[in-house]
């Protein structure tokens, strides 16, 4: 079985603020890490690899320093890595990014399973999985909470708001993975050096069969018009009396008068 795991390097904390001067997100002093959900996708791949001897290829699109995350994935147990890096990819939205990733997966060829985290913790879109499935023209199972490999494919548990789904999927298929699916391991310290025996391949735009109109900013229908800090909601606030029982009695009276508390509700 050949598995491609798509990962993203994200800031180590989402606790970011907008810089008053630059009006942009202030990322000073914040280093990158593998998106937490993607660690679960990697772990899912490694679990399948342990059972089936599958080949695990890890892939990301981004600037050259994303190579750290690929190398980390190699140290965790991936067999090889592909970095998609080109100035032409800059400014891509989800659609343009998904297009490039899907073309890279096509170039690898004969991929049976594509695994992604359910979403990234920075952009929070969760769109990449369905977009790549569509461009690869394969079936998708998103938000998998449990994956088991079985004869001819996968067995997946998935939870909707009020529904539990038991899905059997034939290969090829794309699956996005939740943080319920497994417990990702830490990189073993000694394995880091050994991982350099494995290869990180860089593909530029010219290495892929791309339609120039569909990549980067030009290929992105979405435009970010502005960013801002979340507004705090200010309410009219009424201070209740200091004595707890007086406070409680007054509150209950007010709530009943306003029909907020109705006896039989």
């Amino acid at each position: 079985m050949k598995i491609v795991v798509g990962i993203k390097q994200v800031p180590e904390t989402t606790n970011v603020k907008i810089n008053e001067k630059t009006k942009n997100i202030d990322r000073r002093g914040i280093s990158g890490v593998i998106n937490q959900y993607d660690r679960h996708a990697l772990e899912a791949a490694f679990e399948i690899k342990a059972k089936t001897n599958a080949e695990v290829i890890v892939m990301t699109m981004g600037p050259d320093d994303f190579v750290v995350s690929l190398q980390e994935a190699l140290a965790l147990g991936a067999d090889s890595a592909v970095l998609l890096s080109d100035r032409a990819f800059a400014g891509a939205d989800t659609l343009a990014t998904g297009y490039v990733l899907s073309e890279a997966i096509k170039k690898i060829g004969d991929v049976d399973l594509v695994l992604l985290g359910q979403q990234s913790v920075d952009a929070d879109t969760g769109q990449m999985g369905p977009i790549i499935s569509e461009f690869l023209d394969i079936s998708q199972v998103t938000y998998a909470s449990k994956l088991d490999v079985e004869e001819g494919g996968l067995r997946i548990k998935r939870y909707l708001e009020n529904i539990e789904q038991d899905i059997t999927a034939k290969l090829p298929v794309l699956v996005t993975v939740t943080d319920q699916a497994n417990d990702p391991k830490y990189v073993n310290i000694v394995e880091i050096a050994k991982s350099f025996e494995k290869e990180v391949t860089t593909w530029h735009a010219s290495d892929l069969n791309l339609d120039a109109d569909r990549v980067g900013q030009a290929g992105s229908p979405s435009v970010v018009r502005s960013i801002s800090s979340p507004k705090e909601v200010v309410k009219d606030n009424y201070k209740l009396p200091d004595n707890p029982q007086d406070a409680a009695d007054e509150l209950v009276k007010i709530l009943k008068d306003k029909n907020i508390l109705v006896e039989d509700k």
Partner: peptide
């Protein structure tokens, strides 16, 4: 922006090659 919506909408987005904003 439920599991269903967040799975279906981006696939349709890719089919129609348009923009989608999540959540």
């Amino acid at each position: 922006a439920t599991v269903v919506g967040r799975s279906l909408a981006p696939r349709l987005q890719a089919r129609l090659r348009t923009g989608l904003t999540a959540d």
